[in-house]
Design a protein around this nucleic acid. Sequence first.
DNA 1: GACATCACG
DNA 2: GACGTACGTGATGTCC
Length: 933
Amino acid sequence: MSTFGKGCHLHLIDGSAYIFRAFHALPPLTRKSDGLPIGAVAGFCNMIQRYVEDNHGPDAPTHVAVIFDKGSHTFRNDLYDQYKANREAMPEELRPQIPLTRVATEAFNIACKELEGYEADDIIATLACQAREAGGRVTIISSDKDLMQLVGGGVEMLDAMKNRRIDREGVMEKFGVPPERVVDVQALAGDSVDNVPGAPGIGIKTAALLINEFGDLENLLDRAEEIKQPKRRQTLIDMREQIELSKKLVQLDCDTPLDFSLDDLEVRDPDPEVLMPFLAEMEFRTLSRRIAEKLGVEAPVIADVPAPADTAVETPEMPSFDAAVHECVRDADSLRSWIAQIEERGWVAVDTETTGLNEMTADLVGISLCVEPGHACYIPLIHKAGATGDLFGSDDLAEGQMAVQDALDLLKPVLEDPAILKIGQNMKYDAKIFARYGIDVAPIDDTMLMSYALHGGLHGHGMDTLSERYLAHTPIPIKPLLGTGKSAITFDRVPIDDAVPYAAEDADVTLRLWQTFKPLLHRSRVTTVYETLERPLVPVLAQMERNGIKVDRDTLSRMSNAFAQKMAGLEAEIHELAGESFNVGSPKQLGEILFDKMGLEGGKRGKTGAYATGVDVLEDLATEHDLPARVLDWRQVSKLKSTYTDALQTHINPDTGRVHTSYSIAGASTGRLASTDPNLQNIPVRTEEGRRIREAFVAEPGNLLVSLDYSQIELRILAHIADIPALKQAFAEGLDIHAMTASEMFDVPMDKMTPDVRRKAKAINFGVIYGISGFGLARNLRIPRAEAQGFIDRYFERFPGIRAYMDDTKGFAREHGYVETLFGRRIHTPEISAKGPRAGFAQRAAINAPIQGTAADVIRRAMVRMPPVIEDLNAKMLLQVHDELLFEVAEDTVDEVIARAREVMEGAAHPAVRLDVKLTVDAGQGANWAEAH
DNA sequence: GACATCACG
DNA sequence: GACGTACGTGATGTCC
């Protein structure tokens, strides 16, 4: 055995870095035979194998070791109990894989070293120092910047990910100082990853500047009085102890007591007798074949475990679309024959064609029916005569169409027959159209909503998407029939011959989707969700949308004028301050004025290269300058004018004098509704000026608007789902939940609560619902990240169920590919195992979905039960805003409506779910929405 | 049509 | 150990 010395080359591999990279780079693989999580081990072995293959050249190492961390408590924790305190807990699936990576390293016949109570970095430092003193070369394979202090004198780093060598120059580039001064810079700058405090307000740039000026840290601290910048000077004087502590934390230990020597690390060839059985045990088929080939040995045989029984659902036999018969119904006799078929079957797929997308104004143009796949018809009713492409066409009706009333008279008994199921894709649309012609379509099934219950979160639920995914058929597109832009025509101007195949096919597709989805509902255990939360909501929403809400045009118009004046004034002021005129509404131009022309600090460019000028940025700037403050004012007024006072007026229906929004039932992944055309779920309320817009939403004379909203419903649901006794009790006692949280976290008695402490607790409470992160909370509260992390840690400590809920939810999502609400709604999380930043998004969404989704389910249940309860009263349900229902009620029935509606809402979870926390509903009333809310 | 911004729960 | 970060929506204006 040779002795380590000149000519030797030691490779030190940071094992923990390999593991984490492997873990995050690979999907969550499991061992087929027993389900043991194995992804990180697989990735680790791949990386080791690639390392071995890559290191055969003339520069090959003579000695090598993989170094691991061991134990979570090191001497640094004794120095500072917050050291690495904000590290995320190790993911559950990774934990059992850690010891296996040690076994793997040894199986490759590579030295594997760790030492209780020491970080891998310290062992690496000690070995690097020893090798350097012996006159050898060292390459540290890691991208951890803490190791950069070791570079120099024959020691280099290799960032394996970027395949980049880092020498003295590289360190200078990164830290602005040579390797031996790196610890000084780190001591000042601190490190948010390891939770090293450093000096507040000093980053790497400033730290390097100071160190280069004063030579080293000790000299700097001794002569801190000489620093010119007053704030910086004071920080260094005040924080001396903390800075010196930080240096001890980042300084690597070169005297780790090792029980082995460099000579023990000599490179050895792998022993196939050891390596192959290990790979076989892990069931790595591809990798073991590849390595066997390299080593020139036989690949081990790995038994194949039979896949679980085939659970694929048989799809019903259907004829191809090419063979489909799509008939045109032009007279009463043929319609009667279709009706006979419908009555025989007991179901029919229905689709309407109209002159537009707004059900409140569009006219019925034709109706499609389908009773079995491949057999559909279209009943044209008011198609216009005239040649295709004729710009004006003729207003005369085309020949060979039934009169609208004749067709509807025949169809009405069918559409209203309780024994005949009407199947539609987005049936709310068709039901609203028919309702305007005096037909109350029922009962219904809706393929869009079936898909929503089955596949929520996986993809959209429009007909084209569903047809392509589940029928492998692309429906005839509507675009070529209608054209685009200004020359677009309405469906009544589409020639009947073109309309028939398009329209009939839609009904055909709908029926096929229904036959496909129907058996899937119970297999996926979402029949109850579909039957209680989706299907019954269709007539309820259709009625609400048809009700509409009265909006006072004059009020809006007056506000618009006032806003216009205010904007003009602000605009003049802004141009004056800028010294030139520009478009205040252009973020691009504004950014250039602020950061290029005026030279303000803090200009950050987004991905398109333009400066960010969002509220956060402008609010920071507004403390020092008038221009950004005025721009914020202008933006607020501009938003109110364009989106609300102006646009809302265009949505007032001339026939009803009311605004009729449209709710999408299957739009939001969590089960929430979404409101469009116009969106009445985001009418301003948070600022006084904005709230006045709600004064334009009024009740008819003799009526009042009544608003009922759930109090803190998401936090209550969190308390139940995560099972947090303290939160549950606080709700039971009717305490101020944010104040209680604050009291618990910051040890402030409830009667000594300050608004600021309560505000922080409130932000944390909301943060938890959103899948909190230190960074996010820090940004929200505008506090240092470490402080925010401290709050979160404390919160988890006081309410341990929260962390368990988060971990369990993530685990459930990874295992099943979806999460569930208390009522069984599934929200799929296809990106939960993605790599990169998308995984973080998916995890937070998975944590939020059961909470937001359960709240959405609760109010859906309340809405479904509401109509029969208020049927005998002079009351109409108008709007839903996630946790609020708005009614228009005759003045003398207000109290009764509030009492009954409250009872329905507060009891909406029962009997399906018994919540540990009661649901509380607040009520308000008034002549307009501002007063009622 | 993409992007930035901002309104709501 | 690095990287980007609060969850869910819709409408508007600018700019290419």
